[in-house]
Computed example of a mutant assay.
Amino acid sequence: MLRSTGSSALNFGEAQGANTDKDYINKASISLKEFKESRVNLKILSKVDYGNASRRVELLDELEQLIRIIATIIKNKK
Results as ranks from 00 to 15, higher is better:
Met1Ser: 10
Met1Ile: 06
Leu2Cys: 03
Leu2Ala: 14
Leu2Ser: 12
Arg3Glu: 09
Ser4Gly: 04
Ser4Gln: 10
Thr5Asp: 03
Thr5Tyr: 10
Thr5Val: 15
Gly6Thr: 05
Gly6Ile: 03
Ser7Met: 10
Ser7Asp: 12
Ser7Asn: 10
Ser8His: 01
Ser8Met: 04
Ser8Thr: 02
Ala9Gly: 08
Ala9Met: 14
Ala9Cys: 12
Ala9Lys: 07
Leu10Pro: 00
Leu10Ala: 13
Leu10Asp: 12
Leu10Phe: 01
Phe12Gln: 00
Glu14Arg: 07
Gln16Cys: 13
Gln16His: 06
Gly17Pro: 00
Ala18Arg: 07
Thr20Met: 07
Thr20Leu: 07
Lys22Leu: 06
Tyr24Gly: 01
Tyr24Asp: 02
Ile25Gly: 05
Ile25Val: 15
Asn26Gly: 02
Lys27Phe: 09
Lys27Leu: 15
Lys27Thr: 08
Ala28Gln: 05
Ser29Met: 02
Ser29Gln: 04
Ser29Ile: 02
Ile30Lys: 03
Ile30Pro: 03
Ile30Glu: 08
Ile30Gln: 08
Leu32His: 04
Lys33Trp: 02
Glu34Gln: 14
Glu34Cys: 12
Ser38Glu: 03
Arg39Met: 11
Asn41Gln: 15
Asn41Val: 04
Lys43Gln: 13
Ile44Trp: 03
Ile44Met: 11
Ile44Thr: 13
Ile44Arg: 08
Leu45Asp: 12
Ser46His: 06
Ser46Ile: 04
Lys47Leu: 14
Val48Glu: 11
Val48His: 08
Asp49Cys: 13
Tyr50Leu: 15
Tyr50Gly: 07
Gly51Leu: 09
Gly51Asp: 12
Asn52Ser: 09
Asn52Asp: 15
Ala53Cys: 02
Ala53Gln: 14
Ala53His: 13
Ser54Gly: 00
Ser54His: 09
Ser54Leu: 09
Ser54Cys: 00
Ser54Lys: 14
Arg55Val: 12
Arg55Ile: 11
Val57Met: 07
Val57Gly: 01
Val57Phe: 02
Glu58Asn: 13
Glu58Gln: 15
Leu59Trp: 12
Leu59Met: 14
Leu59Cys: 10
Leu59Phe: 10
Leu60Met: 11
Asp61Pro: 01
Asp61Trp: 02
Glu62Gln: 12
Glu62Val: 00
Glu62Tyr: 04
Glu62Phe: 03
Glu62Thr: 09
Leu63Ser: 03
Leu63Arg: 01
Glu64Gly: 08
Glu64Val: 03
Gln65Asp: 14
Gln65Cys: 08
Gln65Asn: 12
Leu66His: 05
Ile67Leu: 03
Ile67Pro: 02
Ile67Cys: 01
Ile67Trp: 01
Arg68Tyr: 13
Arg68Lys: 15
Arg68Phe: 12
Ala71Asn: 04
Ala71Leu: 05
Ala71His: 04
Thr72Val: 03
Thr72Trp: 00
Ile74Pro: 05
Ile74Trp: 00
Lys75Asp: 10
Lys78Asp: 08
Lys78Arg: 14
Lys78Val: 04
